[in-house]
């Protein structure tokens, strides 16, 4: 049985002449919670976006749930997929953005219902019941008819998590989910993420929240200048960092 959820090999990404990712290898197993740490510009967000093909990689390959991302393998070649085929593959991967990116012309409930209805063509009544349950789960049952502009940042991000979960993803990607929040709102979002981790969701989290990484994650990956410098359990990375660059980063944030 294949327990590998994400299998990235020698992933490269170049913007112009700047190599953002230099041969990144990563394996994430089913049910694992992995956090990515590193200074801004280290390539961690770019790598996350490559996993669901929001960025096209310039070298190497990524498989999610046993399926090659962005390509189809045949006759010893990789054929680029059409955008609608890529969309099909993305249904298994939920993504939460730093800036929430809720749809401003829809209420919280409509945001959560949108993809199951318009992508999976499921019945509205059935989806509505599920969406209400999801909003209740993130503590926003009483806000379902509010538009995003009427919600606080923390509430918007929780709606965004519910929206991603509505597609019943096998993998959740979090791109600095608390970086755009006022400090007092960070906790409510992290609490939702913790409960998600406790239920066994496979998660990759790019974050600056050291406390969350230490407490919740199975594995911490430290990136610097486009490469993975060090990875291990939170205890290993935080208590006994091996690399000078990890040590210097941790000394600034801890």
């Amino acid at each position: 049985m294949n327990t590998l959820m994400v299998d990235a090999r020698a992933v490269r990404k170049v913007y112009g002449s700047h190599e953002v990712l230099k041969s990144v290898d990563l394996e994430v197993h089913r049910g694992e919670v992995v956090s990515f740490l590193g200074a801004s510009g280290s390539g961690k967000s770019t790598f996350l976006r490559c996993i669901n093909h929001l960025e096209r990689i310039d070298g190497g390959e990524i498989s999610v749930n046993g399926q090659l991302v962005g390509y189809r393998r045949a006759n010893g070649k990789k054929y680029e997929l059409h955008r609608s085929q890529i969309a099909l593959a993305r249904r298994d991967v939920g993504m939460v953005f730093q800036r929430f990116n809720l749809f401003p012309h829809m209420t919280a409930l409509e945001n959560v219902m949108e993809a199951p209805v318009s992508v999976q063509h499921r019945s509205r009544a059935e989806v509505r019941a599920e969406a209400e349950a999801l909003l209740e789960r993130v503590g926003l049952a009483d806000r379902q008819d509010h538009y995003p502009s009427m919600l606080s940042g923390g509430q918007q991000q929780r709606v965004a998590i519910a929206r991603a979960l509505a597609m019943k993803p096998a993998l959740m990607l979090f791109d600095e989910p608390t970086s755009a929040l006022d400090p007092e709102l960070v906790g409510e979002v992290l609490d939702v993420m913790k409960s998600l981790a406790a239920e066994g969701m496979t998660m990759i989290v790019v974050t600056h929240e050291i406390g969350f990484a230490r407490e919740v994650c199975d594995r911490v990956v430290f990136m610097d200048d486009g490469v993975i410098v060090e990875e291990g359990t939170p205890a290993e990375v935080f208590e006994r960092p091996q690399h000078a660059r990890t040590q210097s980063f941790l000394s600034k944030v801890l």
Binding site: N52, L54, A87, R90, N101, L102, F103, S118
Partner: peptide, 16 residues
């Protein structure tokens, strides 16, 4: 631009 990214990330085809 975040809107089309969010839509894509939810598995919407370009047309949808």
């Amino acid at each position: 631009k975040g809107q089309s990214e969010a839509a894509e990330a939810l598995g919407m085809s370009p047309v949808v």
